[in-house]
């Protein structure tokens, strides 16, 4: 059943830029959707509309189970955006705290979220004591801690080095498989979209619109990165992008 139906959504900013035109997309529970496209194609705008941080000028969003309550959407930004004065555990606790939960009640869930991203031993560490990749892991744990209905990620690995990026992509796949969450993942990397997503939604700029969708035939596993099917998928997505941009 459909988690979210996005119907002919448009958004034009006060500057006159048409960020999004007639975008339609259906997201089912358990999906892993990548929004792929170059800068200015409206993928981040679409993500903000889904999060409810912005409202469309035309069209509508219909939630299968009613609009999400506070905390039912997890959001991971391009930067880790942690509170620099708070420990890793306090940062992960933040969403629960904002929803009125006490530390004693939240503690087990915070520890579990940190363990899930491989940071079990770093609960007391401050952001400046952590590497960029570890900070991003804390940020992912913060987004997952309330068991959100939908996890939105806006180019979360774009600022990391390639080794860290690969490790986090592998872990993201495992998280998605094990935690059974629904993910919408914005990226401008053809490789990242092809490796991670089950559905690759290609977007084009000026005005931002959804060009087409490609279903991934790959298994959700790190080994897929080295398979000929992966190479073929990357080639196919690149071809589609080039054709759409022309």
């Amino acid at each position: 059943m459909s988690l979210l139906r996005i119907a002919r959504v448009g958004r034009r900013f006060a500057t006159g830029t048409e960020a999004l035109r007639d975008a339609s997309l259906e997201i089912a529970a358990g999906d892993f959707v990548a929004l792929l496209g170059p800068s200015g194609c409206g993928k981040s705008t679409l993500l903000r509309l889904i999060a409810g941080l912005d409202a469309p000028d035309s069209g509508f969003l219909a939630w299968g189970d009613g609009a999400p309550a506070p905390g039912e959407i997890g959001f991971v930004f391009q930067d880790a955006t942690l509170l620099p004065w708070a420990t890793a555990a306090e940062n992960v606790f933040l969403p629960l705290r904002l929803r009125g939960m006490a530390w004693a009640a939240a503690r087990a869930e915070v520890d579990a979220a940190l363990a899930r991203v491989g940071l079990a031993g770093f609960a007391g560490a401050r952001p400046r004591e952590l590497s960029g990749g570890m900070r991003m892991r804390v940020s992912i744990a913060r987004a997952l801690v309330g068991r959100p209905r939908l996890l939105l990620m806006d180019e979360p690995f774009a600022a990391l080095d390639e080794f860290t990026r690969h490790a986090l992509q592998d872990d993201m796949l495992a998280l998605w498989r094990d935690a059974r969450c629904t993910v919408v993942f914005v990226t401008h990397s053809i490789y990242e979209a092809s490796f991670l997503a089950r559905r690759i939604v290609v977007m084009t700029p000026r005005p931002g619109r959804i060009a087409c969708e490609i279903a991934s035939p790959l298994p959700p596993a790190p080994a897929a990165r080295f398979s000929p099917e992966y190479a073929a998928l990357v080639g196919r997505v690149s071809g589609v992008l080039r054709a759409e941009m022309a």
């Binding site: 941080l53 309550a69 959407i73 930067d79 955006t81 933040l94 969403p95 904002l98 929803r99």
Partner: peptide
Amino acid sequence: PPGELLDLFRLNGAGRWA
């Protein structure tokens, strides 16, 4: 505070005081 953190607070239903 960067806009992303303010967004995060909004997403979790934080009011002005929080």
